[in-house]
Design a protein around this nucleic acid. Structure first.
Lengths: 349, 349
DNA sequence: TTTAGCACTCTCAGCATTAGAGTGCTAACC
DNA sequence: GGTTAGCACTCTAATGCTGAGAGTGCTAAA
């Protein structure tokens, strides 16, 4: 069994960088010429053979150059990555876009996905921030016609939900306003189950409304991180490794389908701010065998948090992508913590 | 110049049906055997040659069978289509799904797209219903923290919008409630510009809020039919004519990109209920050269209306698709007119 | 007007050939 | 012992060729 040496690390790094850049198997000869090295191809061949024995490289067929294995990429990401900070000009451009508009929570998430997809030139995804158990903040009841009422529910953390409901009998707007005031005074900061429990003491109308409020909160909680915003599919389809028609279908299916949310919620980092790199489905997710994910959790530690990240081919510029994901994650965290000040701490609980 | 005869119509119809079904150029010999006819291939050849001269058929190369031209498809849709009613069992399934849940307006639209994509096995799209000039119905102001306020705006026609805003100075919730009541009493049924005009007479706080209300309504109006929900992209990628990797990219670009809303809003039918079939971009839209659109306008004549339809390859089962689009359009029209009763007529104006 | 016959055209799949790139191994070299 | 040159070998991808198959257009006869 060979062992890793400094030179082998260097060779591995260069092979991977070259392959990421050019997309073609790296041969010993083109290796030395391309990097202008003073050693012979034969030496590189020996080193490559050793790296192959160690499992970091492979070759598609006898007379082809070397290609990184999943393990090789992982080693690269863990040991051979240099600076991953996003270049300042791009930071500024992103920051500018975020300071441009005052938006709704979900729109922020959508903006984050769009920005991420654009700066990395890859497919991006994000989930809106959710707490484990959402808490009631405010409700508003708007009478539309006799028994038809629009319920607007605001949760701690900034989520706003609307729901249409039909009452058992017509009720005046004034009565509805009194009811919503009462709920706002008494239920602030409660979870779905707590509201369910307390609603028993209310009169019929209040009970009905409170039950629906609890249901909506529960729906938000259950939805959890299943709601995934996506963008930049086209970037991924532009990658030469996915040029085949057959593969394209697979990519679209994987990226648009529900499997994405499952892998994302299972494999995602738990702590806010951390960046996780998933390579080739890590042997567990078959559809992601040819893909790499760069994921990060953003939000407030212990409070609401969401995920965002980038999906691309294994052959991706990890340093740049990681930098972009980390930066946008940071921005979104700032945003959510602002929101938490608004809806949680400051407003009492 | 040849002219159309009954037999040529029949031949054209059969050629197109056969091509739609099997996806391969139709030759004179396989034509007679497949349909078990008592005439010779040579006769069919003559008829096909005439149809080709008339511009309804073509052949990709000398020794291939005949393929319909855009003009051929158009003739087919206009003259040779039989029953286009959607089969009853499918009508019932769709109706069932629509009666299943009480939803938000935009969620109805999303449901319609999903149902359409599923029953036609094609890509589907829809825009939410919009009036030419949206009218104010109700506003609610929710104080979140000193100067930060959540504004919830309900428009005639069922659209609900939220907007965060920052006031110049802190304001009590009670003051906000008084203000929203006042706006609700005085502005019902007004358009953005009317509200803008009247807001001048209000005190500072009211003027600020009214201006934002007007802005939001204006944004909704301007957005118009640019907001397009889409679904079923994967169905389209499954079509054999789009198997090439190159083409797949084009399809995704066309369907996901902004060009869709432009063609949709330009070429869409004007009257509610009508079904329009666009074949091969009609020479005007280059990206749609290989695609057919089946579009319908739903909603309330003279009130809010939206578009829905299906995008597929030229080689599509027009009868079935048209039936499905018409049926879903009808359902959505019913829904919107219910909504209009709620928000418009009944509630006064 | 319809039909049979026939020469002609074009595509597509299969096959062999070849150039090119790269490897692994061995033996010599520092 | 690590490094290098040389060389035989392997595999891919592109090219050109061939034959089968399908279909057409034309002509002449029914």
């Amino acid at each position: 069994m060979s062992e890793m040496t400094a030179r082998r690390q260097a060779v591995l790094g260069l092979v991977i960088r070259s392959y990421i850049e050019r997309g073609q198997p790296v041969g010993s000869k083109s290796f030395v010429t391309h990097f202008g090295l003073d050693i012979s191809p034969a030496t590189i061949r020996n080193e490559m053979a050793a790296l192959e024995e160690m499992g970091y490289l492979t070759h598609p067929h006898t007379s082809a150059g070397r290609v990184p294995t999943d393990q090789g990429y992982r080693y690269f990401v863990e040991h051979l990555l240099g600076e991953t900070e996003l270049p300042l000009p791009e930071q500024l451009m992103i920051r500018h876009q975020f300071h441009q508009a005052r938006l709704e929570l979900d729109q922020w998430v959508r903006l984050a996905v769009a920005v991420l997809a654009h700066t990395t030139r890859k497919a991006a995804l994000a989930t809106p921030p959710r707490a484990r158990e959402s808490k009631f903040k405010h409700v508003e009841l708007i009478s539309l016609r006799d028994t038809l009422v629009l319920l607007v529910l605001v949760l701690m953390g900034g989520t706003v939900k609307q729901q249409m409901l039909t009452l058992d009998e017509p009720v005046e707007q004034e009565t509805l306003s009194r009811l919503s005031n009462e709920l706002n005074d008494n239920y602030k900061g409660l979870t779905a189950s707590q509201i369910s429990a307390r609603s028993r003491d209310l009169p019929a109308l209040g009970r009905q409304v409170a039950r629906i409020v609890a249901q909506v909160i529960q729906a938000v909680d259950r939805q959890g991180e299943d709601l995934v915003y996506r963008d930049g599919l086209l970037h991924m389809l532009g990658e030469p490794e996915f040029a085949e028609g057959q593969q394209v279908r697979g990519i679209v299916q994987t990226f648009e389908g529900p499997s994405l949310s499952s892998i994302v919620s299972t494999a995602a980092p738990v702590e806010v701010g951390g960046v996780q790199v998933l390579i080739g489905g890590e042997g567990r997710w078959h559809e992601f065998a040819d893909l790499a994910l760069v994921l990060s959790r953003y939000g407030v530690e212990g409070g609401a948090s969401g995920l965002l990240g980038v999906v691309g081919p294994l052959r991706m510029t990890y340093d740049r992508t990681i930098g972009a994901v980390r930066y946008v994650s940071q921005l979104m965290s700032d945003l959510v913590s602002d929101w938490y000040d608004v809806n949680g701490v400051t407003d009492g609980q």
